[in-house]
Amino acid sequence: MNPEPLKKSMREVLVETLHRRMLNNDRLFLLSDDLGTPALDKIRKDFSDKFINVGIAEQNMVNVAAGLALEGYVVYTYAIAPFLMRAYEQIRLNLCVSSQIRPVNVNLIGVGAGVSYDVAGVTHHCLEDVSIMKVLPNMMVFSPSDWKLVELFVDYSIEKKSPKYFRLDGKPVPSIYENINDVDFSKGFYELVSPTAGGGKVCLVTTGYPTHRALQVAKKLPGVGVVDVFMLKPLNEKLLFEALKKYDSVITIEEAFLNAGGLDNLILKILRANRSTIELNSLGFNDKYVFDSGGRDYLHALNGLDEGSIIKTVQKLLESSK
C-alpha cells in the first residue's frame, strides 16, 4: 500500500467527475440547496443550464429532482446530509414509491456522514441517515470509505435507474482502494485485509470513515481482517457471509446509532440467517445525541470508536478465544 495515500474530499471528487460526464452527457442535472464546493463552481460556470440552486428548500429540491427524473433526466441533489431528513416524505413518495412504477434516477448526495462535521455540533451530525434511508424500498444506500469509490460510482449511478443515497464524508480522506477495478457495486463490499491462511480470529466489518481506523488496527494486530461494506443496500449477503465465515468473531464499526437498522443489524441478520456461531460485537453511537464539543477523534474516543478502544475490543476477543 502506498505509504502516503492521497487525501481528497469525496464531494469534490464526485462533483469533478460529474463535470467530466456532463461534457458528454446532456441528461445530467445537479441541484443544490445553496451548498457549494469549489468543483461545483465549475459546473455552475460551464453548465449553468444544468445546475439549479433551488435555495434553502430541501423539500422542493427533492420534488424538482423527481419531476426532472420523470422526464428522463439523471439528477443529483447536493445537501448537508441531515438536512435531507426534512424532505423524508418527498424522498419516500416521489423517489422510492414512484420508482417502483416509473424509472426515477435521483441521486441524493448527503455531505457530512456521521460526526465528520464534528465541531459544527449536533445539528450537523448525521447518525440516523443510514437507518432511515435503508428502510425505504427501492433506495440504494452507498456509504464509501474513500474518494476512489466515489469516483467509480458516478458512472454506475448514471446507468442504474433507481433512487440512491450517497453518504459522503465531510472531511478529505486518504484513498484506500488500490485495485479499484476489482470493486463490484452489486456485491456491495470488499475484503481489504484478508485472513491468514487457515482462517482468522477477528474481522472488522466497517462502512465509511471507520474503515480507515480498522485498517490502522489491522496493521498493528496481524491476523485481523477488514471488510469494507460500501453498499449498505442492496448487497450480496451470501457472498458477504462467505467472507465472514472464515473468522471466529466479527466487530462491526460504524459512525451511526447502534441497533437502529444500520450495519450492525445487517451483519447480525446475515449471521443469524446462516445459523452462524461467529461472535458479533458492534461499535457505534449509543442512543443519545452527541453534545460534546471537540474534534472527530475526541468524539470517537468518548464513544468507543477510537483506535485504542477498537484494539481493546479485538484483544478481548483474542484472549477469550485462546
Partner: peptide, 23 residues
Amino acid sequence: ETINGSLGHGPGVACGIAIGLQK
C-alpha cells in the same frame, strides 16, 4: 403521472417536469 393524495407534492414535482420539458 404521479402519486399524490399526500398533499403538497404536485407543485414541486411539476416544476421539475416543467424545466425538463423546456430543456
